[in-house]
């Protein structure tokens, strides 16, 4: 059961601003999504070990050797705002 408060909380975590109509619409959509996923709980998982990764692969590591870098101007060009050395973001309070 998804409440309007759940939706508003999620919106806040996702940095989204939703008006009342959007909250109501989202609540319906989320109910449908969660309800769909909910079908999984009908599967009998007795004796099945929980998984956190479906690949079955473990320990994929690399050696500590430097790889290619992106030149600073290219990095900065990807940002919507920049100065000569840094990406600029609207001033934010410390997290």
């Amino acid at each position: 059961m998804i409440t309007d408060d759940n939706v508003r909380h999620l919106a806040k975590l996702a940095s989204l601003t939703l008006d009342a109509a959007a909250v109501s619409r989202m609540r319906g959509e989320l109910e449908a999504i969660v309800g769909y996923v909910e079908q999984l709980s009908q599967v009998d998982t007795t004796g099945v070990e929980p998984l956190t990764n479906v690949s079955g692969v473990v320990n994929v590591t690399r050696t500590d050797v430097p790889g290619p870098l992106i030149p600073t101007p290219t990095v900065l060009a990807l940002a919507p705002a920049r100065n000569e050395v840094a990406i600029l973001v609207p001033k934010v309070v410390e997290r």
Binding site: D64, P66, G67, L69, I70, T72, V85, I87
Partner: peptide
Amino acid sequence: TRTKMFTGATCDFGREPNSQVD
């Protein structure tokens, strides 16, 4: 380490800003 936790970009201290990015 010479490189980052999950990628081969170096992570030296005191380099030019945004010069160790991949």
